[in-house]
Amino acid sequence: MALVDTGSAKDAGVRLSEAMPGDYFALLKPRVMSLVVFTALVGMVAAPATLNPLIALIALLAIAVGAGASGALNMWYDADIDRVMSRTRQRPVPAGRVTPGEALAFGLVLSFLSVMTLGLLVNWLAAALLAFTIFFYVVIYTMWLKRSTPQNIVIGGAAGALPPVIGWAAVTGQVSLESVILFLIIFLWTPPHFWALALFKSGDYERAGIPMMPNVAGAASTRRQIFAYSTIIAPLGVAPWLLGYVSAGYGLSATALGAGFLWYAWQVLRMGDDDRAMKPAKALFAYSILYLFGLFAIYLTDTIVMRLVSGGV
């Protein structure tokens, strides 16, 4: 399909786009955005204060758009490597539906709008945290770490872990230990989640020249590190109960979910070097998504139920 008119438009030196709104929406990485919205919502609900529901909705929307904007800027910068990876070559920029310049402009405008909206209508601490998240994801992770160190997603994971802190700050105007615990759960969940993917997509990363852990330290080392992180994430998931933020119901559920995480990570650890199908790695990747959604869903439910019981709502 011709995406750029090669007739009169070319003669006139003008590029005429056939990009549909859906292509621009795809630049926002909607699936990542859904996790951002959900974890930010948990941060907002868990916060010990109330916000006008309309302002809360606007805050959530601004956080979602800010996260989406950083996704668009990531796709602008990474178009060259996205083109050679099977997982990403259908993205709008490498597929030619949106030009890199359009993705850059789109990302910059949305970054500005989302941060200003959050600042003007909610509070400036939340806006500053959102701006920092966008900066960290685009500049620190995408432009610097991703192509230079196998610790890229370990450090870069901070950007994906900040939404509950932003949500908390939007409601309270502060950052608390509870919101930092939520941050740490996502932060330490990120390495085993992405390394499980990197194990069965290592060929992709190799072709693109990205120094992911399996390509640099080898599959065996990556499997050990996945398991090591899993032994941290499993008890950390239970920490909010041990610190008294949520009920025993959450504690038991988090223990079960954490045990599941350890079990899947153990299967990955036992996976042989000659395993081409890598089913345990695929299973851990799928389970890790379920784990984080599940943990935060239980956190959300527990907080609401506890408030209802204590008459706080």
């Binding site: 008119d5 007739g7 009169s8 438009a9 006139a12 003008v14 005429l16 786009s17 056939e18």
Partner: peptide, 8 residues
Amino acid sequence: GVKLTPEQ
């Protein structure tokens, strides 16, 4: 001027 295709 520039002629747009139906898709554009």
